[in-house]
Simulated assay, not measured.
Amino acid sequence: MTDYERSRTMPALPEPVLDEAAGPGRLDAWMPRDLHVRAEGPPAAAVRGDGGGDGGGTDGGGTDGPALLRMEWGTRDDGRHPGWLRVAGLDGGTSRVTVHLSCPGGDSAPPPETVERQLDEGLARLEEQVRLRVDSGG
């Protein structure tokens, strides 16, 4: 497996960002379609916690750090594209979204620059969806 991770700042607090990313049927709206990532029932597992940390959800560090929200996905049968998305609150009502995706290695693996570009494009789609949600008051 090869791991990829990309981040982007979003124009909203963490909760609406995670709601937009993890809502029913929304994973397909922003994740790279060519990577065949799909949520399986239940749709994406969202784990909410407080504190900073390394993406492990609640890190036991108390509630002094920024809000940290996380969702995970993967295929149950073969685990080909497991991954997670983490949203951390920033100053000024913005958030930092980090998406992590594991892809199979070998001859069938897409080139790393393709996966990174697709993740960047997916985060840009998510940012646009969040921006539309915020602008419409939702």
Rank of each mutant, 00 (worst) to 15 (best):
Asp50Val: 11
Pro111Gln: 15
Glu15His: 04
Thr58Glu: 08
Glu113Met: 15
Arg26Leu: 05
Asp50Thr: 06
Pro43Cys: 15
Met31Asp: 01
Asp64Ile: 12
Pro110Trp: 07
Leu68Met: 10
Arg133Ala: 02
Arg6Ile: 13
Asp54Glu: 13
Pro16His: 05
Arg86Gln: 05
Gly79Asp: 09
Ala12Gly: 04
Arg131Val: 00
Gly122Lys: 05
Val87Leu: 07
Glu5Lys: 11
Ser108Leu: 12
Ser95Gln: 02
Asp34Leu: 15
His36Thr: 06
Glu5Ser: 13
Leu27Thr: 00
Arg48Glu: 03
Pro42Ile: 09
Gly93Val: 04
Pro112Gly: 14
Asp19Ile: 10
Asp77Arg: 13
Glu20Thr: 13
Gly93Pro: 02
Ser95Val: 03
Leu68Gln: 04
Asp34His: 15
Gln129Tyr: 01
Leu13Phe: 04
Leu85Ile: 11
Trp84Gln: 00
Ser7Thr: 05
Glu20Val: 09
Asp91Gln: 14
Glu113Lys: 15
His36Lys: 13
Leu18Trp: 00
Arg125Gln: 12
Arg125Leu: 14
Ala22Ser: 08
Gly137Met: 10
Pro82Val: 01
Ala39Ser: 07
Ala12Asn: 00
Val130Gly: 04
Gly56Gln: 04
Val87Lys: 00
Glu5Val: 07
Arg133Asp: 00
Gly92Ala: 05
Gly61Pro: 03
Ala45Asp: 08
Asp78Met: 12
Leu90Ala: 10
Pro66Phe: 14
Arg86Asp: 00
Gly53Cys: 13
Gly105Asn: 11
Pro104Trp: 08
Trp73Ser: 01
Ala22Arg: 00
Gly105Lys: 10
Val47Phe: 08
Leu27Ile: 07
Asp107Asn: 09
Thr114Lys: 14
Ala45Gly: 12
Asp34Met: 15
Thr9Asn: 12
Arg76Tyr: 10
Gln129Lys: 07
Ala67Cys: 11
Ala12Lys: 00
Ala67Val: 11
Leu119Asp: 02
Arg48Phe: 03
Thr2Pro: 09
Ala88Cys: 06
Pro24Leu: 08
Ala21Gln: 00
Asp3Gly: 15
Gly65Asp: 05
Ala45His: 11
Asp3Thr: 14
Arg117Tyr: 09
Tyr4Gly: 14
Trp84His: 06
Met10Ala: 08
Trp30Val: 09
Ala29Gly: 14
Glu40Met: 11
Pro24Gln: 03
Asp28Met: 14
Arg6Gln: 13
Arg96Glu: 08
Val134Leu: 06
Glu40Trp: 07
Arg86Thr: 01
Pro32Gln: 12
Leu69Glu: 00
Thr75Glu: 09
Thr75Trp: 12
Glu113Thr: 14
Gly106Tyr: 10
Leu68Ser: 07
Ala46Met: 06
Glu116Val: 15
Val115Tyr: 01
Asp77Val: 12
Ser108Arg: 14
Gly137Lys: 10
Leu13Arg: 10
Leu13His: 02
Arg76His: 09
Tyr4Pro: 02
Leu85Arg: 03
Asp64Cys: 12
Leu119Ile: 07
Asp54Ile: 11
Gly92Met: 03
His81Gln: 08
Gly62Gln: 14
Ala39Cys: 10
Gly56Trp: 03
Val47Ala: 11
Glu72Tyr: 03
Arg96His: 05
Gly25His: 11
Leu123Tyr: 02
Met1Glu: 08
Asp91Ile: 07
Asp54Leu: 13
Gly52Val: 06
Val17Pro: 00
Gly57Gln: 05
Gly49Ile: 03
Glu113Gln: 15
Met71Phe: 03
